[in-house]
């Protein structure tokens, strides 16, 4: 079969296009993911929050979570610092900040990272970053390894440790079922002081900037969540330093998947090169062995050849000597016989 030039060029072209289609497996590069366009988020204006816990109550209700031990109207729970649990997707904490007369209240829940650590580390892909901005979780595939909880820099996912059968990871879904229907998240709807604003992330960023610009005395100049861990769909503005209200400012701006992409990229390289390296070492050790075997054989042969030739020489010499001796004896005997014959003749 002959290949025409046209056909050949066609194949090359197809191969070229083929290699550009499909997603790159490598996360590193000069591209920066800025979130799904038009994805939603919530802006939490911490300076407005009054710590009434209405958001907690609404969250509990819309998500059918178990009734807590202390009622949502009981403000005494604010005396201790709480984190999200399997029974509470969101919690409000009170912080007494030095130099402030009034306490500061902050609501805590899943921040819905643009590139979530939980989704990156899940080995069954139970977590999904949806185009709405919400990070969702599928309990039907979850094995319960809890790696998401190790990975989450905001310490949000919680686990149903006390369930023997099919325990789940529990976390805020940004009310994914509600926002998909065009409703507000439960907490946003319940907030009586508009400390929570639901909207498109890009709009929320503009609102946040506008508030900071308009009231520079009321806010510090930072929007938490704009760049933290590569950015989150949940955003915060505050009148006090974020580190004073239990929010980590040392998380950096690297999206979680980039923390592992380099090491992940090494995996196929090891799988590709190790067989060559190992078989190479094997071949060299085999070769060394066969060479030393050959050398031993050669040495033995040389010694035995030498011994053989020496033996042959010695044998030849001995044979010669023997022959000479025999000849001498024969001659002697003949001479003797001749002599005795001479005597008899006389």
């Amino acid at each position: 079969m002959s290949i025409s030039r046209r056909k050949f060029l066609g194949w090359i072209g197809a191969a070229g296009i083929g290699s550009t289609v499909g997603k790159s497996a490598l996360a590193s590069g000069n591209k920066h993911f800025e979130g799904y366009p038009g994805s939603f988020g919530v802006l939490h204006d911490i300076s407005r929050c009054v710590g009434c816990r209405s958001c907690e109550a609404a969250c509990n209700k819309v998500n059918d979570l178990p009734v807590p031990d202390k009622a949502f109207t009981d403000i005494s729970v604010l005396d201790e610092k709480r984190r999200t649990t399997s029974k509470a997707y969101t919690v409000v904490n009170r912080y007494d900040v030095a130099g402030k007369k009034e306490p500061v209240f902050r609501k805590n829940q899943c921040n819905h990272c643009l590139e979530p650590a939980c989704a990156s580390v899940c080995f069954v892909r139970a977590f999904k970053k949806t185009p709405t901005g919400a990070v969702t979780y599928d309990p039907n595939v979850c094995v319960g390894c809890r790696y998401c909880m190790i990975a989450c820099p905001f310490e949000i996912p919680a686990y149903e440790y006390n369930k023997a059968l099919e325990p789940r990871v529990m976390k805020c879904t940004m009310c994914y079922p509600r926002i998909s229907k065009g409703q507000l998240p439960g907490c946003v709807e319940a907030c009586p002081v508009e400390a929570l604003t639901f909207g498109k992330r890009e709009d929320l960023l503009m609102i946040a900037r506008e508030r900071i610009r308009k009231y520079p005395d009321r806010y510090i100049n930072h929007i938490y969540g704009e760049t933290e861990m590569g950015g989150t769909n949940w955003l915060y503005i505050s009148g006090v330093a974020f580190s004073d209200i239990g929010m980590r400012e040392d998380l950096g701006v690297t999206p979680a998947p980039e923390l592992t992409s380099g090491a992940l990229a090494a995996v196929p390289v090891v799988a590709g090169l190790w067989p060559v390296l190992l078989m190479g070492i094997y071949a060299i050790s085999k070769r060394k062995e066969s060479i030393s075997q050959q050398e031993i054989e050669d040495a033995v042969r040389a010694v035995s050849d030498k011994a053989d030739s020496e033996l042959a020489q010695a044998l030849a010499k001995a044979r010669k000597e023997q022959e000479a001796a025999v000849r001498k004896e024969v001659r002697k005997a003949l001479e003797e016989a001749a002599r005795s014959r001479d005597k008899e003749d006389i």
């Binding site: 990156s120 580390v121 899940c122 080995f123 892909r125 390894c145 790696y147 090491a263």
Partner: peptide, 10 residues
């Protein structure tokens, strides 16, 4: 459900 971006998958 191969979550290949996870080192735990590995």
């Amino acid at each position: 459900y191969q979550g290949t971006t996870s080192f735990l998958f590995e």
